[in-house]
Design a protein around this nucleic acid. Sequence first.
RNA 1: GGGUGUUUAGCUCAGUUGGCUAGAGCGCUUCCCUUACAAGGAAGAGGUCAUCGGUUCGAGUCCGGUAACGCCCACCA
Length: 865
Amino acid sequence: MEASYDPQAVESRWYQVWEDAGVFKPEINPDGEPFSIVIPPPNVTGVLHIGHALNMSIQDVIIRRKRMQGYAALWLPGTDHAGIATQNVVERDLAKEGLSRHDLGREQFIEQVWSWKAKHGDRIKEQVRRLGFSTDWSRERFTLDDGLSDAVGHVFVELYNQGLIYRGERIINWCPRCHTALSEIEVEHENEVGELTHIRYDFTDGSGSVVVATTRPETMLGDTAVAVHPDDDRYKDVTGKTVTIPLIGREVPVVADVGVELEFGTGAVKVTPAHDALDFEISQRHNLPAIKVIDTEANITEAGGEFFGQDRFEAREAIHHALKKQGYIVEVEDHHHSVGHCSRCGTVVEPMLSLQWFVKVEPMIEPSVAPIKDGRARFVPQRWENNYFRWMENLRDWCISRQLWWGHRIPAWYCDACDETIVSVEEPAACTSCGHGSLRQEQDVLDTWFSSQLWPFSTMGWPEETEDLAKYYPTDVLVTAYDIIYFWVARMMMMGVHFTDTAPFQDIVIHGLVRDADGRKMSKSTGNAIDPFDIADEYGADALRLALLQSAAPGHDIPLNIEWIDAARRFGNKVWNAVRFTLNHVEAGSVPAAGGYPTEPGPADAWILSRLGEIITEYDRLLDEYRFSDAVGLLYNFAWSEVFDWYLEMAKTSLRDEAAAATTRQTLGVVIRDLLALFHPVIPYVTEELWHELVGDGLVAAASWPIPSGNTAPTGIDELQSLIVSLRRFRAEHGLSPKRSIDVLIDDPDATAAPWWQDQFTALANVDAVYDGPPAAVAGHTRVTAGKIQAFIPLAGLVDVEAERPRLQKAIAESEKMLERSQAKLDNPNFADRAPAEVVAGEEQRVTEMSAKLEKLRTQLAELV
RNA sequence: GGGUGUUUAGCUCAGUUGGCUAGAGCGCUUCCCUUACAAGGAAGAGGUCAUCGGUUCGAGUCCGGUAACGCCCACCA
């Protein structure tokens, strides 16, 4: 073995081995209880970013541990076709050649996207492998696969037949750049400062005017009314009158509607039903016409008269000027409001009346909230359920049609002759109504999330009743970042409950977003994005995974510091070297893959085995609670500060003792082996490599999960460690070389210091100790203590008396402070009465110990000559 | 406007049924190349746990108010 760990060499070695051995297939544990996770499918033409790395690291920890625990553990991988995102990418590519998708035509364009998919889909697979994620590739899925497309068709038709999908004219969000409708959640609202323009609309009968306030003057071209609140005293007499819209001269009514906010603006609102959701509602209640004045390019339509053809923002300026010139503008004030942008391209979206397909969500809300409310499924951390509830309760119909080419084409056909709409999985041979008209299929495709929402069961073969579906559905855990709870989790819940009568997952583990060291969101445009593969190349995939998991406190964002990754890398080296040390004493390949604990361990062995047992129990508990950061931190600190810093040093001592060497070697082997197994889900590569060195046969990836050995710690271990630390500290404070052996006289009234104890003390504290009780004359000595054990140190020739005085004074001050604190508690009668007995006993013990210690220290100080 | 999160060591963060003498990594100081590891070892300095008030024998931890920063949602014409 090399003296230092080289991640690159090791990490290129194992993935293929795991795959060839079929480790990632649940069939490796044929009798195991099923356990399943479906991966949140990344965009097929994208690349994995650090957020994916976090997301998948968490899932891998869960699934690898379950596998080692003997479950038939399935982690199902796959990718999403990501409609708009992918289409945009390919279109951008075409644009470089001066082409648009229309130049290619629908079929050719789709072919083009498929070839992109072929190229980039493989790249994602490579990346998933590079980071060591243990997905079952034999079950890989893609949302546009035949099977998944069948599921989509099936769901669409079923929902349509149940009246839960309908086609209708509604106000939708239109992206003039992507040329498609968007759902509510694909619109990002950003706060902006705009102008609130107060415009005078004169009554047609010449009896005065009403002033309306708007942030979008250009929409006045499509106004078909002015609305006021029915209870608004200011406008009591105006309802029923008509006003003439400036510039275009149309005469429109003033209506009273409760949708109008009394407090806002002037209390009177211009009504543009074709370009505003509220206005559309008002128009429905008052039978007002809707006039489209902005087209799909965001230009003014012919209905806009002289402004025809202008871009909406140009038109805003032009109309403002025209109004001003003619004296219609009463006031312009700055106004803070939020403006919707396309989440894919950032273009300001245009609310627009449009004929689209919708999912009627209302009937599905209650059933999809119920599993969370009654505990059949739960969010971890739980607080996310409130967001989920609130969102579900305010849900409005979901616009699912997209004017794109890349995606599942809506399975609806229209008859040219009789206008019938036929919705069917298979293309109908003839019109089901008139029987003779020619049919044309709907051009639109479905929102990407329409197929993603079926992912947990469509990937398992639904609607067919497959073995996988029966065995692995519903899934056990869903791991996802909080930013797609609405997009994805809520909808999966809706569809899962609706079509399979069960929540599609039990535990919904929510994690945060990975941010940069300053807490900013990582993005390509800010240039602060950290590429996980650069990290993997430089530090190793294991280091990346360890660093991410160490920081993964439930539901919180993670600022990623390169120092953490560097520290994680050093940990890999540390483990590497611990194994190297072990192999100096334990024959390579001789450690059994499980069990093998010594029946009569030496004291130090018993101690580390007992600690290991405690750690395993606690580690399991934390992992079961999805507290990855705590779990990994626990194991990390145990490995480093207890096993490496203490046990390995103690092993060096006992290995010199022939009688103790055998169990020490045995313990060394199994403890390090168990550490490798426990760490394997977190850092799979280095542990696999080291397992190979230490255990030889088999793979840690397929090994069994460690269980506590049941050892208990020997007496005296705490005193031993404490006294060693005290000696080292004494040495450091007096600037004594660690190499200089110190003579000590030990007073050990309870005879705690057994021979093994004495050996360890001698070696680790570097002392020459005599166990004859206190010296006859304590004068000229100082001492360090641990429990009842005192070590007397002759000062002559070692330390100047005056240098020892402040050390003792400091120690006295510390002890006094603690004694005071405890005494104060005990002096409070309420404390003794109301605190639990064990807490009170703890304080009492502390007082006893501190008093004894203080007394010794004071004596010591007095005796210092 | 509604909701929600954060505020703990110089920096980045843990701290889940209230008992903490408040931890980790990095950084800092001192000593040590002790044959597993200098990507290391030993020892140490550094915190009125944002703030005010409350509950409690006891509060970083629970409750209420305030401030700053952040995020999400909203038919803010």
